[in-house]
């Protein structure tokens, strides 16, 4: 309805130019949470902005081809599942829920395992936040599929 090509060329071009870089920055924020500010929440927010910006500025057919409507709920569910699975896996190794250090893989120290566990959790949170925000925007814009 109200989404779609913005009348001004400047806005369209700037939106199209910026959104891939915002996407890249979001991925960087998600992956770089161990060493700098950021992590799943902020990174997921940037990813969602990168998906929403084309929806507001570009023609509808193009914007919804880049990130389809069903992507939002899908990513939200996948991210949430990833988080839950990451919590369940240590339980098979005799650890507690979300205790990544309990996972034993030959050659990887417990501290390294927790490092990797944090990474997987951050990716899950990022996907979940991305999916939830895109879903809310699509629903507000009356573009969701049931």
């Amino acid at each position: 309805m109200m989404t779609g090509a913005y009348p001004s060329v400047v806005v369209r071009v700037v939106g199209a130019l910026l959104s891939p870089f915002i996407l890249l920055f979001g991925l960087y924020i998600v992956a770089h949470g161990h060493y700098g500010p950021g992590g799943g929440f902020a990174g997921g927010g940037f990813l969602a902005v990168a998906a929403i910006l084309p929806r507001v500025t570009l023609p509808e057919s193009l914007a919804y081809k880049l990130v389809p409507v069903h992507f939002g709920p899908l990513m939200g569910g996948v991210g949430m599942l990833l988080f839950l699975l990451c919590g369940l896996v240590p339980m098979f190794f005799g650890g507690m829920f979300l205790d990544y250090g309990a996972v034993e893989i030959a050659g990887i120290a417990a501290s390294r395992m927790r490092y990797l566990g944090i990474l997987v959790v951050e990716i899950g949170v990022g996907l979940a936040v991305f999916g939830a925000m895109v879903t809310i925007f699509d629903v507000l814009m009356d573009r969701s599929e049931t």
């Binding site: 161990h34 060493y35 992590g39 799943g40 988080f83 501290s111 959790v121 949170v125």
Partner: peptide
């Protein structure tokens, strides 16, 4: 414990991961 220099991240995603969940 976690080889993670950023304490905030290790707190949120490891020590207190149930809160984050």
């Amino acid at each position: 414990d976690t080889e993670t220099p950023n304490v905030v991240t290790s707190l949120l995603a490891d020590y207190r991961s149930q809160d984050t969940l």
